[in-house]
Design a binder for these strands. Structure first.
Length: 674
RNA sequence: GCUGCUGUAGCUCAGUGGUAGAGCGCGUCCUUGGUAAGGACGAGGUCAUGGGUUCAAAUCCCAUCAGCAGCUCCA
């Protein structure tokens, strides 16, 4: 006897074995047709799988309206895609083919490279398989037979996975549709016809077997599927929109920055318009730093190798640094002694040669500023801030636009504090990040508190200190009024940290602001302050950067605003334009006054029609246009056009300037709804 | 770093072995037009770089550099 509880509160009892489908069919033919899979006591099951014969279960039938069904659809589509590829390319080895947040992929090992030209053929074969309406059939197979089956099928990767990843499983599940059999946990749709027509292959890329870069590389086919063709179209449109907002595209179109081959990959040239945005952001944060009692410092872009040997960054992280600089004299002597390149590298690593490093971080410089004076506990906290440019040798494949570069400027600061001051100082840092994100209308972010992994012994510092610091981080994060997750094992080896992860328009997540507690560097550099007990004490350091790096932050900001910056950040705040050349003289007076008012503008005096000038300014995403014609010249007015609202009508120049300055001062974010 | 794709005018791109192209932008001239494209003429190219194949290479091959997608990485 089986009792089934349905989500609507009703109960059904069965004396003979039934599947979820049987239950659906009994409720009604419509539901039987719509049902795709089921949840039994919260766990997924195939629609036609038999339910337990005895007891009581909660059953929920999944239809295409359930998010869980979408995942099942995508995973099933992955099998169909794999089947199509196997039909078209004999000898394919299958790896993994899961559903993802936006679609699915399948990893293949095959001799010839797949290209986009193959997509239509694969898609056509997939359509054929859908039309064949093959049932997805679950097979439960004991381990020895499962291994035998995978060997027979020639699926060596599956054999390996059975022997390593799944070595504790006595029975393995396979799914079969038609001639295609795949080792798979499931679940799947009843049959291939339910996949429908809303699928599309998107891209092909390399991926390592089991995510290990030392293993063989597979070909990963990315695709997506929706229950509805319209949803697919909407998703493709969203991808299109994301491309339109791409900061690399907008950066070129709006003349914000350039990355030039002749200068070097990953090295950003900030053009005048991009520099305005950066400067405004720096000024903005600078005001808050003053308010919070920070001291501005400046330090050079290089430091002695020995400095980084003390900090531990060299040679440990040398693969992600630009190679050291060695002076001419030393190099010549080494060459005369017959020192080879590999000797040189070894001797640099061993610390036998003096050299300089392009600084990969700012902390050692700031530490030496702290250490240049003797400090009392009364001086603390000491907060040293700098827009510090650092250089890191990112792997060539990682570079991209402004978001991953080789030289970047952090809005960096280091706080030297007593342990008692730690909670307040962390809270102050978080407040700053929150102000920054709030001012820019970036609300889609999460806060991640990285704690130590209790199992690991890689961490430096006393456990009691860690407990206090972690408590301080949690407390500060909780005080933010934003949801946060505590993630054990995510701490740096030198201390816990708090990261702000912002989600951009394409759904990618970027780690921007960060606050990190550090016990390691004060130790390594033997930093001290004199306590009230007249004895030396070790300060704790806090590293923090609300933007992370200005490059990455501006990159994300460009996409966030789709290039249409709020007035206070807009490189060109106003486009002044004449109706005809007859009003040019008056317009020049207006231009002078606007400049004196501190507004950033360009003036368009060309003998073009007004419509053309407006169109250009609209496309250039200039927030306000000031139109001056003969009527304005007579009345001493300007006519304002808002990029979003259109023509706002005439007003006196003074009134127009007041309006713009008020909006700038308020840092108002105005955007059209997307 | 790895796999695949790509590199032609300032930008977006067409050109698949036989004379280097388009649109936009830019310049000059005409037009003096009140809220999203007025017209005419013109300038602009080591076809990423270096080799090779060929009577002949933007086009085919190899290498390098750079970009893109993804993987791996990010103190």
């Amino acid at each position: 006897m089986l009792k089934i509880a349905l989500p609507d509160g009703t109960q059904r009892t069965y004396s003979s074995p039934v599947s979820a489908y049987d239950v659906a069919a009994e409720i009604g033919p419509g539901l039987a047709q719509a049902a795709l899979a089921a949840e039994v006591d919260g766990g997924q099951t195939d629609l036609h799988a038999l339910l337990p014969p005895e007891g009581e279960v909660a059953l929920k039938l999944l239809t295409k309206r359930d998010a869980a069904a979408l995942e099942i659809l995508r995973h099933s589509a992955a099998h169909v895609m794999a089947q199509a590829v196997m039909r078209l390319f004999p000898g394919v080895q299958l790896a993994f083919g899961p559903a993802t947040e936006t679609g699915f992929y399948y990893d293949f090992l095959l001799k010839c490279p797949l290209t986009e030209e193959d997509f239509p053929h694969i898609e056509a074969e997939m359509r054929a398989i859908v039309k064949e309406n093959l049932a997805f059939e679950r097979l439960e197979i004991p381990r020895p037979e499962a291994l035998e089956l995978c060997r027979e099928l020639g699926q060596e990767l599956k054999v390996e996975h059975l022997e390593t990843g799944l070595d504790d499983q006595e029975t393995l599940s396979f799914y079969r549709q038609g001639e295609f059999v795949d080792l798979c946990r499931g679940r799947h749709l009843p049959s291939t016809k339910h996949i429908g027509k809303g699928f599309k292959l998107l891209s092909v890329a390399g991926a390592y077997w089991k995510g290990d870069s030392s293993r063989q590389q597979l070909q990963r086919l990315y695709a997506t599927v929706f229950f509805d063709k319209k949803e697919l179209a909407a998703y493709l449109h969203q991808l299109e929109e994301a491309r339109r907002r791409d900061h690399r595209v907008l950066g070129k179109k709006l003349n914000l920055f350039e990355i030039d081959d002749r200068v070097g990959a990953g090295l950003v040239l900030w053009k005048p318009r991009g520099a305005v945005i950066r400067e405004e952001l720096q000024n903005f944060i600078g005001q808050h730093l003053k308010r919070q009692g920070y001291s501005q410092v400046f330090t050079p872009h290089v430091g002695k190798l020995e400095l980084y040997q003390t900090s531990g960054h060299f040679p440990y992280y040398q693969d992600s640094q630009f190679p050291p600089l060695v002076d001419r004299e030393t190099l010549r002597k080494l060459a005369d002694d017959g020192c080879s390149c590999s000797d040189l590298a070894n001797r640099l690593t061993a610390g036998q040669i003096d050299g300089y490093l392009l600084k990969p971080m700012n902390c050692p410089h700031h530490i030496r500023i702290y250490a240049s004076e003797k400090h009392s506990y009364r001086d603390l906290p000491i907060r040293l801030a700098e827009f510090g440019t650092v250089y890191r040798w990112e792997q060539s494949g990682e570079l991209g636009g402004l978001t991953r570069v080789r030289g970047f400027t952090q809005d960096d600061a280091h706080l030297f504090v007593t342990e008692a001051q730690l909670p307040d100082e962390i809270a102050g840092c978080l407040e700053l990040v929150k102000i920054v994100l709030g001012t820019l209308g970036m609300s889609d972010y999460r806060v991640r508190v990285g704690l130590r992994d209790p199992e690991s012994d890689k961490y430096v510092g006393q456990p009691a200190q860690w407990d206090r610091a972690e408590a301080a981080c949690r407390q500060a994060a909780a005080g933010l009024g934003v949801e946060y997750t505590a993630e054990p094992g995510e701490a740096a080896f030198y201390g816990p940290k708090i990261d702000f992860v912002v989600r951009d328009v394409i759904g990618r997540q970027w780690q921007l602001g960060t606050v990190q507690v550090d016990y390691q560097l004060p130790e390594r550099f033997e930093l001290e302050y004199t306590g009230a007990d007249n004895k030396p004490h070790r300060p704790v350091m806090v590293h923090r950067a609300p933007f992370g790096s200005l490059e990455r932050f501006v990159g994300v900001l460009i996409e966030h605003f789709a290039g249409a910056f709020p007035l206070w950040l807009a490189p060109e705040q106003v486009r002044l334009m004449t109706v005809s050349e007859k009003s040019a003289d008056y317009a020049r007076q207006v231009e002078t006054q606007l400049r004196q008012a501190g507004l950033r503008l360009t003036a368009d005096y060309r003998g073009q029609k007004l419509g053309a000038k407006i169109r250009e300014a609209q496309l250039a995403l200039v927030p306000y246009m000031l139109v001056v014609g003969e009527k304005d010249a007579q009345q001493g007015t300007v006519t304002i056009r808002d990029r979003l609202e259109g023509d706002l009508g005439p007003r006196t120049l003074a009134a127009a300037i007041d309006q713009l300055q008020a909006e700038i001062a308020a840092k108002t974010v105005r955007q059209t709804k997307q």
